[in-house]
Simulated scan of single mutants.
Amino acid sequence: MSGIPLHAAAENNDVAAIEKLLADGAEIDARDGTGATALLVAVHANRVEAAKVLIDAGANVNAKDKIEDSPYLYAGARGHLEILKVILAHGADLKSVNRYGGTALIPASERGHVETVRTLIAAGVDVDHVNKLHWTALLEAIILGDGGERHQEIVDLLVKAGADVNLADGKGMTPLQHARASGYKEIEATLLAAGAQ
């Protein structure tokens, strides 16, 4: 629980308190000890109403905390889809990256957030962005995914969005090689159909 009233109100999803604090001159993008704004606190807790009020009042959707998370990046990574859609409509920086050098699409793909992946692709996030691990969203979905239905669907979405199926990791292993090594037959078939080597 934060010592900053606006942050506490955001964490508690207390819209009335947020509106009163802002009307009384609370600084909308004030930071707590972790560097988080009230909006990021709301996003962490998936407090949709609090997030909407803060965004509508002009909260910065791209303000990063000390570990380089922003409301936009965190909502995408965690699959907080309702908040993410509002953030995307309010100036999300699609090129911004997290502490791993990855866009919101990469952790969303890894964690199996199908609708979030679909939403981020539609918003125009670069499907072939490479993070500091030399992994793309496609590679993360295969390497860190479980090969199940959600990750199969994400691989399909990424491929249909034009992801480079032959973009290898830092060691030169391709998505197809990773899929085969993990025994993910359905993903392997999707990749092969898309011309994977």
Rank of each mutant, 00 (worst) to 15 (best):
D65P: 07
K66L: 13
K66R: 14
K66I: 10
K66C: 07
K66T: 12
K66P: 00
I67F: 10
I67P: 01
I67D: 15
E68N: 15
D69I: 00
D69H: 13
D69N: 15
S70V: 08
P71S: 11
P71H: 09
P71V: 08
Y72M: 09
Y72S: 11
Y74L: 15
G76V: 05
G76N: 06
A77C: 08
A77F: 07
A77E: 07
G79N: 09
G79C: 11
G79K: 11
L81V: 12
L81M: 03
L81D: 07
E82Y: 02
E82R: 12
E82S: 10
E82G: 05
E82M: 05
I83C: 02
L84V: 03
I87E: 00
I87P: 00
I87Y: 01
L88T: 02
L88Q: 04
A89N: 12
G91Q: 07
G91F: 08
G91V: 04
A92W: 03
A92R: 07
D93S: 13
L94Y: 06
L94C: 09
K95C: 03
S96C: 08
S96P: 00
V97H: 05
V97G: 00
R99W: 11
R99Y: 11
R99E: 13
Y100H: 14
Y100M: 12
G102D: 04
T103L: 11
T103V: 02
A104N: 04
L105I: 05
L105D: 00
L105Y: 02
A108D: 01
S109T: 04
S109N: 09
S109R: 04
E110I: 00
R111P: 01
G112M: 11
H113A: 00
H113K: 12
V114Y: 09
V114M: 09
E115N: 14
T116P: 01
V117H: 06
V117G: 03
R118H: 12
T119C: 06
T119E: 15
T119H: 05
L120M: 09
L120A: 08
L120H: 08
L120F: 07
A122R: 13
